Structure formats: C-alpha cells, structure tokens
Simulated assay, not measured.
Amino acid sequence: MTLEINLKSEITATQTGQRLDQTLADLYPDYSRTRIKEWIQSGWVYIDGIASTKPREKVLEGQLIAVEATLQEETAAKAQAIDLDIVYEDDHIIVINKQAGLVVHPGAGNQDGTLMNALLHHSPGIELVPRAGIVHRLDKDTTGLMVVAKTVEAQTHLVSALQAREITREYEAVVLGSIISGGTIDEPIDRHPTKRTHMAVVHNGKPAMTHYRVAEKFRAHTRLRLRLESGRTHQIRVHMAHIGHTLVGDPVYGGRPRPPKGVTPEFFEVYMGFKRQALHAIRLELAHPYTFEIMSWQAPVPEDMVTLTRALRKDTEDNPIVV
C-alpha cells in the first residue's frame, strides 16, 4: 500500500539563501527532517521543475519547490484481529488502554500477537505510518494509556511534543517498603553493563527524571502516583529499584516476592499470585495534533491491582502501623 505526497510552495525573500532541507522543514513541519532528507536524496524534490538531490543546495526567492513523494508501507508485520480497549479515536489519533500481557512491537520471541499487529487490523491505513503509528511504549505487563498516531503528520507532532515534555503521563504503582513523602529521581539510565536485557542507572547514561508522590501507605508497602519527565526503557521500574523500593511483582528488578511477616493465608495467596509489575498508566494528557485542543484521559486501575491494594489495606488494618 502506498500514499502519494504532492506539495508545492514558492520561496519567499526571507527564505533566500537557506538550505533546501531547512526550507522544506520550515514549510512542512509535519514531516521529520530525516524523511525530508530521504525525499531530496531520492530525487523527489524539484526546484523549478528540475530534481535536486542536494540537501545543502541554496534556494532563491521566486523559485517553485515541488515534492512528489511516495510513502511506502512502513512495516512487514501482519494484521491480526486482537481485542483492543479503545478509549478514544478520531481521524488522527487512537488512545488505547493496553491490557497486561500485550507486547507493543514484534521482536525476538514475539513475532506476532502484538499491539502493532492489532493496530494494522483495526486501522489498515496505519501501515503507512512508521511503527504503525506507535508514539511511545509500555512494557508487556504494564497496563494503561497509550496514544497512537493514524497519520505521519500526527505522529511527527506527537513525537515532537513528547520530546519537548508537552505530553503528561501519570502512573500508579505499588512498591515495596514504606515511603514517607514524595520526591524526584534524577538519574541517567542505559543498558546494564553486564545484563544486556536489563536497564540500570548508569553514570554516562541518558538523562531520566521521575517524579513521585505518596498516594497511600501500607504496613510494608506504598502506593504511588508517578509522572515521567522522560521516557527511558523500564524507567519507573529502574528508578524505584535504584532507591530501594522495587515494584511489587516485578520479575526483572524485584527478585523473589517477599510478603511481610504474619500475613493471613488469604493475603499470601493474593500477594504471591501477583505475577507482573504493579504499574498502570492511569492518566494521559496532550494537545491534539490537528486541533491543538488539550485532551485528557484516565484509565481505571485494573482489577488485579485493585485486588492487591485491597489485600494490602486489609493487612495494614490487621497490623496497624506503629508511628
């Protein structure tokens, strides 16, 4: 499947002397600089009817710039009928409440059955958008809100907004240990130096910042609300582990489950049966990429985390916190 792109503009006096790629980026901000460079180098950009393949070529007032490009299908993944919990959808974006167990991208060990496969089935035209419109990701067993772009223009806008920290992403989590008050973790993250499938706080890693506040205190656990300033892989899980408060059920960073002493059999069953990280993307707020209207969505905490929270609350009632 392909999509034809036809764009035309006349160079103004203020643009005279600019590079061709810079001028196109200014004229058509919905397309990335990388894509514009590809168009030029592919011979799809014309200056007064003559193809230009030099991104650095200078433009002059009065010249007619034309783009005649073709967007090819961006993914080889196949469409699959997979149920999605769609919170909102229009011609430009889809907001999804992702379920636990759903991988976002196909990869080693997950060639199909992913969110990308589901999106290709739900909205076939999305195959023309890089990564099937996926703007940001959630880990396989993290639940909650994600925004997906249905057009290249919407994706370019949302990616830029995400990088500029103009998209609000709030999470709910349950962590081990008692946290007295909220705070901010400002520690760089990158691949673990020896465990290549893990991430870690690394001195020369990429900047990462997580804000958190206490929502509820339990006997030996804390329910948190968190907000991301960046979007590194496993960021919340790594940051909380770094300060000694790993997420309940986290199979990678949390180690073996450690229920507190003196719990009831009912609590033990719930706690040991929680097999994923207790993390849910509860709120998403952004400016719509077409209307620029500020939009906000909330996804209810999933039933397994509700059950866990009730069990922790009951355990705290049975074993009051001594202050």
Rank of each mutant, 00 (worst) to 15 (best):
H221Y: 10
S42D: 00
G133H: 08
R165I: 07
L247M: 06
V103G: 05
M240Q: 08
M240L: 10
V87R: 01
Q235R: 01
V201D: 00
V263F: 15
R35A: 03
G107L: 13
D186F: 04
G144K: 03
R225Q: 11
N110D: 14
K314D: 03
G133Y: 05
Q99S: 11
D318Y: 03
V45S: 06
I321F: 08
S181Y: 14
H192R: 08
L247H: 02
H122D: 12
L247K: 04
Y46S: 15
A281P: 15
P29A: 10
T142C: 03
R165K: 13
P29E: 10
K37T: 14
D304E: 11
H121I: 11
K8Q: 15
A100T: 07
G273D: 06
D85V: 15
E170G: 09
D141Y: 05
T143F: 05
T210D: 06
R256W: 14
I96L: 09
V263N: 15
G17E: 09
Q155R: 15
L228N: 08
V135T: 02
V103F: 04
E229V: 13
E293M: 01
Q72H: 15
T197Y: 06
T307K: 14
E166V: 02
E187M: 11
W297S: 01
H121M: 13
R225V: 12
V214W: 09
A173N: 03
S296W: 00
H280I: 08
Q18T: 13
G183E: 04
R33H: 09
I47F: 04
G125D: 05
P257G: 15
L64K: 06
S42P: 01
D190Q: 05
T246Q: 15
F268E: 15
L145W: 08
L64C: 03
R196V: 01
N117Y: 08
G182P: 09
R256F: 15
Q63M: 01
R219P: 02
I94G: 02
D112A: 07
M1S: 13
V238S: 04
D83R: 00
A100V: 07
H105K: 13
Q18I: 09
A25F: 08
H203P: 03
V67M: 02
A281F: 15
R213Q: 15
A77E: 12
G273E: 07
I179T: 03
D83A: 08
V252S: 06
K78A: 14
D186C: 06
N97D: 09
N117Q: 05
G183Y: 05
G244K: 02
H92Q: 11
A200Y: 11
L7W: 10
V103N: 04
S42R: 01
D304F: 09
T307I: 12
M146F: 06
D91E: 11
R35L: 07
V87P: 01
R258A: 15
N110K: 13
V214P: 12
V45F: 04
G109P: 00
S296V: 01
L145M: 04
V148L: 07
H136V: 00
Y271E: 08
D315H: 10
K98A: 10
N204A: 05
M146C: 09
T53Y: 13
D48Y: 08
